[in-house]
Design a protein around this nucleic acid. Structure first.
Lengths: 263, 263
DNA sequence: GTCTATATCTGGATAGAC
DNA sequence: GTCTATCCAGATATAGAC
């Protein structure tokens, strides 16, 4: 991933460059997708990186090709009839891979669900780490969180939807980590609110923890209520604008002069 | 149900009496529970009314006693491991009723899920019909919807949670009705907003449909994110106040003089 | 690396005794 | 009205050929 350097000196460099600038990936869904390539071969490569050690197949060519088939068909089946209700025979038929073949890619049915959760966490962690590595003012930070998260929800829709609805099938550890991840996201929102209030950008005398919690909930709607948005033909930009606008209205916030930059 | 008269003349009477008054059941959770008795024997009687024709047992005594066991254990099992993952042998062990015994109360495993959905719909319909039979001003109507819905979510928590997460296991018809019910709820919120704007009680220039949609989402949080509210020890009154306050802030609304009544 | 064939078991559902 | 015993479809998982 070119966007997420793990090298310390590069981190510092990026951090300085980005001071007082907008997060560069939230200007549009198209820009986000171009920057983060969470689709196509790079996605399946990531799946292989995370899950490869549990596979018998080591040749990259067929591995990536079949991982794509297996995961995509799992989403199609699980997100309509449910993961428990989906049999591996269903999956075999749908992918065109035999039963025996499937087991060269997954250790067990549960392993498959587990891998999906692990890959999604990996992606979220990478994108959010990058977002918080940029030093943004509270207004731009809030904007980056909201737009970035909705874009990510959109690109990784099947993954989020699966993890939300099949959480009960995961291990205790995985459920706990998922809860921790959500709590951490809430905290980051809350800290952004607090920071903005201290800076005089927001003024709000209500319950700031609950506001963070419910902002998270509004963001999750983009993958949880897809049927409704499709029915009403609501575009992703419309929805992201709406969420941002709603939170600002509650917070009593407007973009401060000091944060006006490239945008 | 004493609260939901189907008699027309009584309807009109209640309607006149309630003009310009608050909905009488949203003053506190305790008041709501006292008025609507959605627990105990009356609840199982309702289950029997809705689902009884599919049962072999016709004697009311054991019927109510075992229905309570079966449904409560189903909630405990399904809401932890999932309905599909729960076997009827699990349910048999948990209830203390034999496999054969269970089948005297349900036609099939799927029937059980189906009955849960049907009973919940019945309750929602009854409570909401009553709410909208009262002629309230837009401010009080909004308050009644928000508090009433959260109270109902709380009392019927297991039922809501089950229906939300096991929706995929239901028939196409049932899923469609559930979606219709939610859309109708959104519409009623939206109409309340519109009415309030026309009356000058609210002023809002944003997307009113999305606001209704996301208000519904905030209300659903009370049963979807119970783990978070328990963790943070958020009381139901605190949460209901917060949601009402947030929507009012977005709408730019305050309680008008004209709607001040008994409260 | 992929397939066929098969072992093994679990779960839903029913028959019939009490 | 409730239980025991049993049937059998369908599920996961593996062995071993190609």
């Amino acid at each position: 991933m070119e966007n997420a350097s793990t090298d310390r000196s590069t981190d510092l460099e990026a951090l300085e460059q980005s001071l007082r600038q907008e997060w560069p990936y939230n200007t549009s869904l198209a820009a986000f997708r171009r920057a983060w390539t969470l689709e196509g071969p790079q996605l399946w490569q990531r799946v292989y990186d995370v899950h490869g050690d549990r596979m018998q197949i080591k040749t990259l060519g067929p591995a990536l090709r079949n991982l794509e088939k297996i995961f995509n068909c799992t989403f199609r089946l699980a997100n309509t009839k449910g993961f428990q209700a989906m049999s591996l025979r269903d999956l075999s038929r749908e992918t065109g891979i035999s039963m025996g073949g499937l087991y060269a890619y997954i250790g067990s049915k549960h392993d498959l669900a587990s891998a999906i959760e692990a890959v999604l966490r990996d992606v979220i962690d990478e994108v959010m780490s990058d977002l918080f590595r940029h030093a943004l003012g509270p207004y731009d930070r809030l904007k980056a969180i909201i737009y970035g998260d909705i874009y990510m929800n959109d690109v990784m829709h099947s993954w989020y939807y699966f993890c939300y609805l099949e959480a009960k099938g995961l291990t205790r550890e995985q459920r706990d980590s998922a809860m921790q991840l959500e709590l951490r996201f809430d905290e980051r929102l809350r800290d952004t609110f607090t920071e903005g209030m201290e800076a005089g950008v927001f003024r709000y005398d209500g319950d700031i923890d609950l506001l963070a919690t419910n902002t998270t909930a509004m963001l999750q709607q983009w993958y949880l209520k897809r049927w409704k948005f499709q029915l009403k033909a609501t575009s992703i930009e419309t929805y992201a604008d709406f969420v941002f606008d709603s939170v600002l209205r509650i917070l009593g916030g407007h973009r401060p002069q000091s944060e006006r930059a490239a945008d």
